[in-house]
């Protein structure tokens, strides 16, 4: 099935029941804005037969019921939505603050990252916590926000060998991205610290701490503050 292009978007069948919509082949605020708008439009005006949506940096995966719709059907519907993207209201982003205890057992890679960049750990912490980040999307596992962009001076490759298990709440960096592991999962990002905040809860009224589009800032806290906040969360 040929790939087609419409209204600045490229359509690509991903499986027999899913279609990828790409707005760009690189990460830009403009393409991400289109992802957010299309997502909001498909959520506020759901299409019968569309089952799920997986947003990312500059693309949206649309999963559909192959007994009701074809790729061509979904593409035709999305094209009509694309024409209306500009008029989709997007709320002002929320300003979120995440307390992080950097270094020590909580941030086992802080020393290596500092050495890699020829900085002191305090400089790495200062740099990481003085930037604003955008939560581009939630993916990988429930509540995992892909945040960016890291200051150039902190851009670090992933671990050559991923850890088998990263503790829940761990703050990691990889390439230009930063993120927090909501659950104990395998992971290849370099760990700088940990937050006591529960990033994903079973409370259906407040599932994910972060949402797509949030502006995020990290606040350094002491191990004592970490323990106190962790206790308060229970």
């Amino acid at each position: 099935m040929p790939t087609s292009v419409a209204a600045g978007a490229r359509f690509q069948p991903a499986s027999d029941q899913s279609l990828l919509v790409y707005f760009d082949e690189r990460i830009t605020l403009e393409s991400h804005g289109k992802v957010v708008r299309l997502l909001r439009l498909l959520q506020s005006e759901p299409v019968a037969g569309i089952r799920d949506l997986h947003p990312a940096y500059c693309s949206l995966l649309i999963k559909f019921d192959g007994l009701r719709l074809t790729h061509e059907d979904v593409e035709a519907i999305v094209r009509t939505y694309l024409d209306r993207l500009q008029s989709v209201p997007v709320p002002e982003p929320r300003e979120m603050e995440i307390p992080v205890c950097y270094g020590g057992d909580f941030g086992p890679d802080l020393a290596d990252v500092s050495t890699y960049h020829g900085m002191t750990p305090a400089q790495v912490i200062e740099l990481h916590s003085s930037s604003d980040y955008i939560a581009y999307f939630l993916g990988f596992v429930p509540g995992f926000a892909y945040m960016g962009e890291l200051p150039d001076a902190l851009v670090t490759p992933r671990l050559a060998v991923p850890r088998r298990s990263v503790p829940a709440g761990s703050l990691g960096i990889a390439g230009k991205q930063t993120g927090i592991y909501p659950f104990a999962t395998p992971g290849g990002w370099r760990l700088l610290g940990r937050t006591p905040i529960k990033m994903f809860r079973s409370d259906e009224t407040a599932l994910s701490f972060l949402t797509i589009g949030d502006r995020v800032r990290f606040t350094p806290i002491s191990p004592e503050q970490f323990l106190a906040l962790e206790k308060a969360q229970r």
Partner: peptide, 10 residues
């Protein structure tokens, strides 16, 4: 590669 949505059975 830029991270993107993945399908069941990918």
């Amino acid at each position: 590669m830029i991270t993107e949505g993945v399908s069941l059975g990918a």
